Computed example of a mutant assay.
Amino acid sequence: MTLILKKLTSINDFHSQDWNELNSHDNPFLSFEFFAALENSGSVSKETGWEVAHLAWFDEQGLLQAVLPHYYKTHSYGEYMFDWAWAEGITRAGIGYYPKAVAAIPFTPVSGQRLLISAQLEQKNPKIRHELVSQLFSSVQEASRLDTSLSDKQVSNLQCLFLEEKEVEGWKIAGAMIRRGYQFSWYNNDYQSFDDFLGKLRSSPRKKIRRERRNLMEQGVSFKHFEGCEIDDDLWSFFISCYQQTYLKRSGHLGYLNQQFFEQIRLTMSEKLLIICAYQNDKPLATSLFIKGKDILYGRYWGALELIDGLHFDCCYYQAIDYCIDHEIGCLQPGTQGDYKRRRGFIPEYVYGAYYFCDVNLRHPIQEYLDEETEQLKQQFANWTVTSPYK
């Protein structure tokens, strides 16, 4: 099958059904609706440093066979597998680092497929994944200006962030350097209650969690869960306000995602949404927003008008564990990093990035950096195994 590669500068250049049919794992962050909310709200745009350049492969009949969410970037914000050290060092050496090409879900550190390929195409050609990646690398290297090329501008490197583990080999065979990071996930081992989960922990973390939850109850803090159409205008506005105020206090801005983004996902993805709201003496105090996947609950955004010791842990983790147990959901993924999650029963797992540098003189020092980083991470995982909170 002959495939034609095109660069499309808007999610709206695709038919939603065609895109979603390639999202075979039903990952909510890879849905047409999520990308449309990012782009149509202006949260993702050339002005915010995410110039849209999605890569699409069509067959001779014009049917979409594969797609890679893809951007040109002039900074490294909102990626969560950060390369600031490389960018600074390479720039100091007098070599241009930006723009770079990034295949990712903006502002979303969630692992999953990145190169979405038709199941029929992959069944016919098991090598198609690394063949398409090899084509991308050739296009980047050549910096061709043809309409069907990867780029109409030169980039220093191409990065694919948070690709799932089974995709890694295809990128590696094509010539990418592989980077490891880590996240923490909680797994529901057929727990019947929160106490059942706590019973699997060692004494110290078990007592700490119980003390944190008890302290909140003694201060009049309670929680309610709202899904889909249960989320009314007042609650949604309160969530957005909490999100913006928390970002403002922490980072000096209102957050990467604007109000229009949140309004759109409420309209187009309402069945995927869960809000956990904290109240103190019946007055709303904090919220956390979760997005439901296929047997996975993703913790994404949170905010509080007032911080109380332990509030973040309960609103973002313990309440979500309660929800997963009650609804028989297998996994809770609360976001990036944070050893405090591990101490509360979350399991460390590798995440992966793939990198291709056009300048051959940069590849060796970057690979040395990655090798050293990987060894340090392996040692950290070994230490975590010894200090597991589980019995």
Score class of each variant (00 low, 15 high):
348 P>V: 03
54 H>Y: 12
50 W>V: 08
241 S>W: 01
30 L>Y: 00
30 L>D: 01
9 T>I: 11
307 L>Y: 13
164 E>K: 09
208 K>C: 11
312 H>V: 05
338 G>W: 11
305 L>V: 01
369 Y>R: 11
287 T>V: 09
82 F>M: 04
235 L>M: 05
364 H>A: 13
309 D>Y: 11
374 T>M: 08
313 F>S: 07
371 D>P: 10
37 A>Y: 00
377 L>N: 06
31 S>K: 12
295 D>L: 00
166 K>P: 15
251 S>Q: 12
228 G>L: 06
20 N>L: 03
19 W>H: 00
122 E>M: 09
243 Y>Q: 15
43 S>W: 14
338 G>S: 10
147 D>N: 09
86 W>G: 08
77 Y>P: 11
313 F>C: 04
74 T>A: 08
20 N>E: 04
176 A>T: 02
88 E>K: 10
77 Y>G: 15
371 D>W: 00
135 Q>V: 13
99 P>T: 06
277 C>M: 12
279 Y>N: 10
282 D>H: 02
291 I>S: 06
188 N>V: 02
44 V>C: 02
148 T>F: 11
182 Y>Q: 14
142 E>S: 09
69 P>T: 07
164 E>M: 13
66 A>H: 04
199 G>C: 08
95 I>N: 04
388 S>E: 14
377 L>Q: 14
57 W>F: 08
104 A>W: 06
352 Y>I: 07
191 Y>L: 05
332 L>D: 06
164 E>I: 09
271 E>M: 10
344 R>C: 07
104 A>P: 13
48 T>H: 07
42 G>D: 09
123 Q>H: 04
3 L>S: 00
36 A>L: 15
68 L>Y: 03
54 H>L: 15
67 V>H: 01
102 V>P: 08
112 G>V: 12
333 Q>F: 04
49 G>R: 05
367 Q>W: 09
103 A>V: 14
